[in-house]
Design a binder for these strands. Structure first.
Lengths: 347, 347
DNA sequence: TAAAAAAATCATAACGTTTCAATTTGACCC
DNA sequence: GGGTCAAATTGAAACGTTATGATTTTTTTA
């Protein structure tokens, strides 16, 4: 008696072999095949028959059907703002690390767009991912609390969210920015501008606060007129640098809060024919490989991308394994890489 | 009579509202709710009740359960070698474009590792993605033909695969490389080295052939001793440049076949204290934004990332909509962006 | 060698959707 | 009002797994 059930040629896909097919040709029940697939003991002769049958059918278990019963898809949703240098590295590391843990990654680029962030939540929800990793957004705590309330682990990168049971990984934005700006102050700079990211982002706030703290510690007046906000993009970095350049009393140094804004700032300076560090000193948050190749090479705060990815992965996995139920915070240090984009000011 | 069926607290997830719950509180059958969800006509009063019920339950349809019946997950698998500048851009564009078509993206970075490529196929298969997009691998035609045989559309980027019913998008690797090298020849360079990618990759072969063709057309002898193979990485670009630099008769120009290898080559030259273009001219395949900021700015072949993503998306979508059954090839032109990394040789 | 214990297997009921034949409802016409 | 037809609804059967209680087989013990 052959077990050939009705066809269903959805979208032209051919019917794939099922556990039922395997069971039939192996001459055992589907329960036994399932046991085999899930690593339980089966009698030797049966195991061999099953293996032969799997081989001959080219069977691969359906994660979809499996998820139906177990409510576990072995898949996490990853939401990044875009694929700039930093996030590209993070994404690649994460995808790889998660895969090693048996987790597939559903990716979403929200482009700092509120509607897209909403959409991302919807996608992740309807696809029933097991966990969420998110970064670079703001104003989504209601959706997050909804997700968390549903029992789905959430890990945030560089976002602080009080009162919600989520895990966070962050770098020492405040400390690192403070050190970066202190470095400028120590070189004798008194008028230091900052090009910040979107100040509704927690990260941008932290970096700005670090900047302010450093100035204060150096006994300098933090001039609000030297704070230039951008929205993390190259374009905004360009514009912000332009405004800084035209400021009443031109700053002698600038602290740029992201790699992309640094690109913009440098482009502006290049267009102006301004020389770094002779005409202005510059320190960048975010280090990218290519800063080494710029002329001058750029002093930058390097985020430990791989350790960040590692930490995020660990948090996700421990939550999925039910090893931890309370929110945790991992705070990673950055490294300041001194290069040639700053100079000592003769006073 | 309340429809509260047994709990199943897998992984601590709370039970999500189901179509059954919605049907119960709306006072209709689940079939009617399903009709509503899928956009069919339902009686006005029922529609309103259903909408209220969905709202109050916070219901979101399960793509997993849906896929069980329809064999369609609205998800595509995307396999890239890594997240270098080019692939990061491609990935971001693709993810976004696909999402607009209602497709989620399962991402995999195979790192040019054969075992990982195999693993990627397994992940995509067990997750039953509706289509595959792949790039940057070699030697997988048996797995691909298996996938295609199963009725799953496959779209390749920059890979040629004869005899298989897959769609391919590529750029004019041969033509563009030829033009790039011709440019060098026209500037009077007679000893032009090439730093190629992994020659088992079709793309690398094409670019090398373009290089050879250009030299031939210029009446120059293509010296095999000036061909330096790397594996697309910065590290290999560095090493290859090193070998080129120490060649018996040092080349006066070099054509580097990928951005990352260009970084490596430039780093080597910088370490040597060699000046571009004075000591050696350089043209790069792959343009990255930052080449504008280098000193000198780098002449490069720019791949039309967004058009590539657009084309790939179109091919995938048309296949999924069963609008096309024969393999297609989209061949996109590149642009050569002339900057300052080449100079005319005084002969 | 029989009984008891343990191990392996089986049949079947979920899981949350979609689909389909059968039924009910509603609209319209004479 | 009765009859016809289309539109909307229903109930139940899938889809491919896992989990579970009941059963069979094997192993151990007496």
């Amino acid at each position: 008696m052959s077990i050939s059930n009705g066809r269903r040629p959805a979208r032209g896909k051919k019917r794939q072999a099922t556990i039922t097919d395997v069971a039939a040709t192996a001459g055992v029940s589907i329960g036994t095949v399932s046991r085999y697939l899930n690593g339980y003991q089966v009698r030797r002769d049966n195991r061999e028959e099953i293996e032969k049958a799997i081989e001959s059918h080219g069977y691969a278990r359906s994660a979809v059907a499996s998820a139906m019963k177990t409510d576990t898809l072995h898949m996490v949703g990853l939401m990044v703002p875009n694929c700039d240098e930093f996030h590209a590295g993070l994404l690649a590391s994460l995808v790889t690390l998660l895969r090693i843990e048996g987790l597939a990654t559903l990716t979403y680029c929200h482009g700092n767009n509120q509607a897209s962030v909403e959409d991302a939540f919807n996608v992740f929800r309807t696809h029933r991912v097991d966990a969420l990793i998110m970064t670079g957004f703001d104003q989504a705590s209601n959706r997050i609390s909804e997700v968390v309330g549903g029992g789905t682990p959430v890990v945030l990168y560089d976002n602080e969210l009080r009162g919600l049971n989520v895990d966070c990984v962050k770098v020492e934005n405040f400390e690192s920015s403070r050190r970066a700006v202190r470095h400028l102050a120590e070189l004798g700079h008194e008028r230091v501008a900052v090009i910040t990211g979107n100040l509704s982002h927690w990260t941008a706030q932290q970096r700005l606060r670090g900047y302010q703290a450093a100035l204060e510690e150096a006994g300098l007046q933090a001039d609000p007129g030297l704070v230039f906000q951008g929205y993390w993009t190259k374009h905004d970095g360009y514009a912000a640098m332009g405004r800084a350049w035209e400021a009443d009393k031109r700053p002698t140094a600038v602290f740029s809060c992201s790699a992309r804004m640094t690109f913009g700032a440098l482009t502006f300076l290049k267009d102006q024919g301004a020389r770094v560090p002779n005409d202005i000193s510059l320190v960048s948050f975010d280090d990218v490989e290519m800063f080494e190749l710029f002329d001058p090479t750029i002093t930058a705060v390097a985020q430990p991308v791989h350790r960040i990815a590692e930490s995020i992965k660990d948090l996700v996995v421990s939550r999925l394994n039910q090893e931890e139920f309370h929110s945790r915070l991992v705070n990673l240090p950055c490294e300041i890489i001194l290069r040639n984009s700053t100079r000592r000011l003769q006073s």
